[in-house]
Nucleic acid binder design. Structure first.
Lengths: 137, 137
DNA sequence: CTTCATAGATTACATATGTAATCAATCGCG
DNA sequence: CGCGATTGATTACATATGTAATCTATGAAG
């Protein structure tokens, strides 16, 4: 049950709540972003001090999920992992934690309890169609 | 962005990863469970020491998600919140965190990336049917 | 050149979490 | 009755996380 010590290739270093928001800002920036840009972007949605955001950037770099390249005396940051990859990792961890890995149960849960637009429903149905036709017999 | 200090009525005191497993053991016990039972149940699935499990029980009581009633010199624990309630809370937090609250996006994600049995798919479709017929125009 | 604003690096500190060990009371056993 | 086993209570300690402040180097302004 004990997590193995981090090996650098391992993307496992889990991204915390606050860190996720920073990554979100990075992910939604085309190409690379300077700290100042990340800060500006986040101050629109949080009340964090710039210091705090810099700390996050640092930690994310240490965790290996952010890379940077020097540009004069500042850094340009870019994600080292895709949002999709992180979403998959976080999603699976959540699924295991809360639903014991039962994807069906989870989907049923959210389908029941969350608001869905007609469009959401149509799209989901269509995904399910493909899924069932592609499924093994 | 700062979480307000815990008021007791607030179920918010979030259940950690390890704590969730303890709650799971409790939830799957009909009626109340003594610490020894919880320990036995968890040792089957983890490598935690009994000490550790007792610490969890304590913290969960402090957090208000577990209640106990004395039975001789031991305690019988019972959940103070339902699994469903906790699942909803955790689920919503995850949804907000990772999918910005977009339930449709999350469902689409898992529908695409997770394995689903025929049965899962059928059930989901049926939920979606009801949902769309019940939906406002 | 001196000074201030900035950028990144380092250090700080409280709370949460994982993981126990130690303490104190007590119940059953010999 | 005395003692070890067991139960809950208290304390411990490392790492993670939220949230910054301080230190150091340097480029821009005067």
């Amino acid at each position: 049950m004990k997590a193995p010590p981090n090996t650098q290739s391992n993307i496992r270093a889990s991204i915390s709540d606050a860190e996720w928001q920073v990554m979100d800002a990075i992910w939604s920036t085309p190409s690379a972003a300077a700290a100042a840009e990340v800060i500006a972007s986040l101050q629109a949605r949080t009340d964090w001090s710039p210091r705090t955001i810099k700390t996050m950037l640092n930690r994310l770099v240490k965790k290996g999920v952010l890379h940077y390249q020097a540009d004069g005396r500042r850094y340009l940051y870019r994600a080292a992992v895709t949002r999709e990859k992180c979403v998959r990792v976080q999603g699976r961890s959540f699924l295991d934690r809360v639903f014991g890995g039962q994807a069906g149960a989870m989907l049923a849960h959210f389908a029941k309890h969350e608001k869905l637009s007609k469009k959401d429903i149509e799209e989901l149905k269509s995904i399910l169609e493909q899924k069932s036709s592609a499924a093994h017999e």
